[in-house]
C-alpha cells in the first residue's frame, strides 16, 4: 500500500488554508506570506506553498512529491532519508550530517535548509506520517475547503484522476503529472495548464537512483581490478628489470 495526494489545479482557489494548517500542525514560525515571496515560497519554515502560475494565473500547490524511488534517499550517505511503507519520504535528523546532497539530488528542488541556525537540519513535507499512522489524513488535506487536494491510495487516486479526465476532457490536459515522472511520485496533479515548470528541466521518466546504479555496481570490480592490474604490472616490470640485469634498490 502506498498513500498519495492528488491535487486538482483547476479547483484550487489559492486560499492558503493548507499552508496555515501545515504551519500549525508542525508549529512552524511565521514566514513572510507566500504570495509576497520572490521564490517558490518553500523554506525551512514553509513546507508547502502555493505557486501562482503564469500567464493563466492558476494556483499550484507544491510540496515534497514523495517519489516512489526518491533520489534524495539514494543520495544520502547515511540513509537519513527513507521511504516508509506508507509511501512517505521521511527525514531522520538524528542521522543527518548536513552534507545537503539530498538538496542537490532532488529534481524538484524541494528540501530546504535551516540556513539561519547554528544547528541546521533539512526541512520538508513529511506527508504527515504520524497522522497517517493514526488513521488520519494529512493536515493540509483536512484544511482544504474546496477538496482541491485529496488523499488516498495511489492506485485509487490514479483511477480517479483518469476518471475525471474522461468525464471532463475539455477541462483537463490528458495527463496525470506524477504518474511516470522520475519513476512516479506520490503527489499527483491534474491540470488544465502545463505543469512542466514544477521540475528543473522537462521531467524525465527515469527513476534517478538508476543513474548512479551502474557506477556504484562497478565500485567493487574496479577496486579489485585496479589492485590486480597494479600487482601484475609490478610483477612484469620486476621480471623485465631482472632479465635486463639492472635491479632497482628496494630501500633508499
Amino acid at each position: 500500500m502506498s498513500k498519495a495526494i492528488l491535487t486538482d489545479v483547476t479547483k484550487c482557489i489559492g486560499c492558503l488554508e493548507c499552508v496555515s494548517a501545515c504551519n500549525a500542525e508542525y508549529d512552524l514560525p511565521v514566514d513572510v506570506p507566500t504570495v509576497w515571496q520572490k521564490n517558490d515560497g518553500l523554506s525551512a519554515k514553509n513546507w508547502t506553498s502555493i505557486l501562482r502560475q503564469q500567464p493563466e494565473g492558476r494556483y499550484v500547490r507544491i510540496q515534497c512529491r514523495h517519489c516512489l524511488e526518491p533520489a534524495c534517499a539514494a543520495a544520502c550517505p547515511v540513509g537519513a532519508l527513507q521511504r516508509t511503507a506508507e509511501g512517505a519520504v521521511v527525514y531522520d535528523e538524528n542521522k543527518c550530517l548536513g552534507c545537503r546532497y539530498c538538496m542537490m539530488a532532488c529534481p524538484f528542488g524541494i528540501p530546504r535548509y535551516d540556513w539561519d541556525r547554528a544547528l541546521p537540519y533539512v526541512r520538508k513535507c513529511t506527508l504527515c506520517i504520524d497522522r497517517i499512522r493514526d488513521g488520519r489524513e494529512p493536515a493540509c488535506i483536512a484544511a482544504c475547503p474546496e477538496d482541491a487536494t485529496i488523499f488516498g491510495e495511489r492506485e485509487d487516486l490514479l483511477v480517479l484522476a483518469h476518471q475525471r479526465i474522461a468525464d471532463h476532457p475539455d477541462r483537463y490536459i490528458d495527463r496525470v503529472w506524477g504518474e511516470h515522472e522520475f519513476g512516479g511520485t506520490g503527489v499527483l496533479y491534474l491540470s488544465d495548464v502545463d505543469l512542466e515548470f514544477l521540475s528543473y528541466r522537462p521531467a524525465m521518466d527515469i527513476a534517478l537512483p538508476k543513474t548512479i546504479e551502474a557506477a556504484m555496481q562497478s565500485v567493487a570490480p574496479a577496486f579489485v581490478g585496479m589492485g590486480a592490474f597494479m600487482l601484475g604490472l609490478n610483477w612484469i616490470i620486476k621480471r623485465r628489470q631482472k632479465l635486463q640485469g639492472g635491479h632497482g634498490s628496494e630501500e633508499e
Partner: peptide, 25 residues
C-alpha cells in the same frame, strides 16, 4: 561546510552503500 560536522562519523555506523558520497567518505 557540513551543517552538523560533529556527526561526520555517522558514515561509519549508518550505511547507505547506494550513495556515491558514502563511498567517497
Amino acid at each position: 561546510d557540513l551543517g552538523l560536522p560533529w556527526n561526520i562519523w555517522h558514515m561509519m555506523i549508518y550505511w547507505n552503500p547506494h550513495s556515491p558520497l558514502f563511498e567517497i567518505g
